[in-house]
């Protein structure tokens, strides 16, 4: 079903439909994440992918129009590239350890430690939270900074200051150029 939604995304040309289908696709993948025990991830995907990102895409579509132009030439070269890359990936997949086996190498590096010891060391039942905020606190701080930097970029590109000071009295919300870029890491 997920694959069908993905291929539908590639085929459709009305971008409005594409964005809506992308929301459905996100929700489907959230369901798949739940099935694979990643409840935290599913939660995030449902809230972010199916909610916020759909709204952002729609808001951008209002600005750029929702018709996609018909491709001028047949996409032969991309198709070849994709098939070759896919074959290479499939070849690599053959060597991957079997799905769902508890003896896979990924499960025996630090994961054991997290699962067995986080009870004593952190005392938080949700291991994902413990790893996110405590063991890998540096990572998460980096992520927060990345997200913040992204919004600084959006503000610089689209904020009221980005059109210069000509807007005059309209910029009464206190938003001006140097302020929008302030505090960038």
């Amino acid at each position: 079903m997920l694959a069908a939604a993905g291929i539908g995304l590639a085929k459709l040309r009305n971008l409005f439909t594409v964005v809506m289908l992308a929301g459905v696709y996100s929700l489907l993948s959230a369901g798949l994440f739940t099935v694979m025990d990643a409840v935290d991830v599913a939660f995030t995907e449902a809230a972010v992918g199916a909610g916020i990102s759909t709204v952002l895409f729609l808001a951008a579509l209002v600005l750029v129009g929702h018709r996609e132009k018909k491709p001028v030439r047949a996409p032969v070269l991309p198709l070849v590239v994709v098939i070759v890359t896919g074959a290479a990936l499939a070849w690599g997949m053959i060597d991957l350890p079997p799905f769902g086996d508890p003896d896979n190498p990924v499960h025996h590096h630090v994961a054991d430690h997290y699962l067995q010891e986080s009870g004593h060391e952190i005392g938080v039942p949700n291991v994902v939270t413990a790893v996110l905020a405590s063991y890998r606190g540096y990572d998460t701080m980096g992520e927060a900074t990345v997200v913040f930097t992204a919004v600084v970029g959006v503000l610089l590109l689209l904020g009221r200051g980005a059109q210069g000071r000509r807007t005059g009295p309209e910029a009464g919300t206190g938003l001006s150029e140097p302020e929008a870029g302030e505090g960038g890491p």
Partner: peptide
């Protein structure tokens, strides 16, 4: 199940939508 990939992907999703919004802003 292994919690480590969950943590990595959790943050990746949010970062993904933030970078997508930068892309959309550029497109606009």
């Amino acid at each position: 199940s292994n919690p480590l990939p969950h943590v990595l992907i959790l943050t990746a999703i949010v970062v993904g939508v933030a970078t997508t919004s930068v892309g959309l802003a550029l497109a606009v």
